[in-house]
Write a protein that binds this DNA or RNA. Sequence first.
DNA 1: TGTACATCAGTGAACGCGCGTTCACTGATGTAC
DNA 2: TGTACATCAGTGAACGCGCGTTCACTGATGTAC
Lengths: 213, 213
Amino acid sequence: MSSVTQARTRYHHGDLANALAAAALDLARAGGPDAVVLREAARRVGVSATAAYRHFAGHEELIETVKQECQLELVGRMETALAAGTPDPDPQREAIRRLRALGVGYLRFAVEEPGLFRTAFCHSDASKEPSWNRMLSSPGFVALTTVLDDLARTGALDERHRAGAELVAWSSVHGFSMLVLDGPLGALSPEDRAPIVDRLLDAIVAGILGREP
Amino acid sequence: MSSVTQARTRYHHGDLANALAAAALDLARAGGPDAVVLREAARRVGVSATAAYRHFAGHEELIETVKQECQLELVGRMETALAAGTPDPDPQREAIRRLRALGVGYLRFAVEEPGLFRTAFCHSDASKEPSWNRMLSSPGFVALTTVLDDLARTGALDERHRAGAELVAWSSVHGFSMLVLDGPLGALSPEDRAPIVDRLLDAIVAGILGREP
DNA sequence: TGTACATCAGTGAACGCGCGTTCACTGATGTAC
DNA sequence: TGTACATCAGTGAACGCGCGTTCACTGATGTAC
């Protein structure tokens, strides 16, 4: 038994906030944002529902925590995908490779963790503008800007296309992910999807560059 | 009093199925898919909740009906936007104009009717593949293919970019819509958003064409 | 080093809510003769 | 044309469920002296 496991058997849990957040994240993983239920999270941790109120103002704060966690998991996947491939000595081809890798990581996360992905972008009443800051300032997202800058610097991306290129790239990949998860593309089998994903990424890259890659 | 209004005062409503669907659509408009509540729809029509079961198998069938209705509203907006502008005598510029119009109609609907838009693409457990057929075979969506064909025919769209161009266009516009509704772009005021939408559409068009429009 | 006590982090029962759904029913409708 | 009757489309009460949240409480912790 680890000290953490022992801790749970004691009256004072010791790390209830994190334990509840982790349980809630599991709920999101399995069933999306609607499955993030305070009482169930407490149940899984083996604690009364009331105990959660010592660590979260209420359900909204819990799900907002989970949502942020989901966003960080997404950028984690992007960063992993970025680091996975073998660098190309040619700086231009390397930048294109990295742009694709970011897209692949994003799409993979959406498909492999639909519950977390939906939670990361679930609708919340509270206008929590700052909640996106951690995600947008993460290495994964900053890498997108870096890569586009590299493309502009090497001349692959025309200056006229540089402005707003982040938004085009993000929108394309995000929209495709949503259409696969909850749209008409959901009927596609993984085998059918793979080549389409490939072609889509080609098209997005071509679109951003404004010419053949 | 119209005959319809009179009908509601009678024991037999006469058109309960449509009345419930309309009330449910209003709920979706105001609060998105989660607001589509069978009991509330019945309440609004002035009928017992039980009565709904004479016309719908249950809640799931009701919301699926609303979802399809939302999809049709979306394509309706696309068609309206398509018909709104003044045609360009040059076939190539005309095709580009129409492509942009479709995107504008899509984005406008998302922003102006967020509840309906979310409902149109809400997650539903039932794998209802055929439910998308009405939307995809609607004039609005068929127009997308037509426009892209026109662009290819007039030479604006390179043959190598033609395959999957629908998906690129749709994903971009859909993704942007989602990021505005439930993502970090939601903080944008309508005034700030307008120029970004313009640039995004430029970028999408440029991306699809693979060169300057 | 030992102890009183404030504080902290849990408990368990309960509340109110609104939902989807079922049940036995009843009033209205329209059709066969 | 009138009437018996099957069918249809409603009613209202009730059920069970699970949720978020509040309440008064109690056991554990750690700090001041």
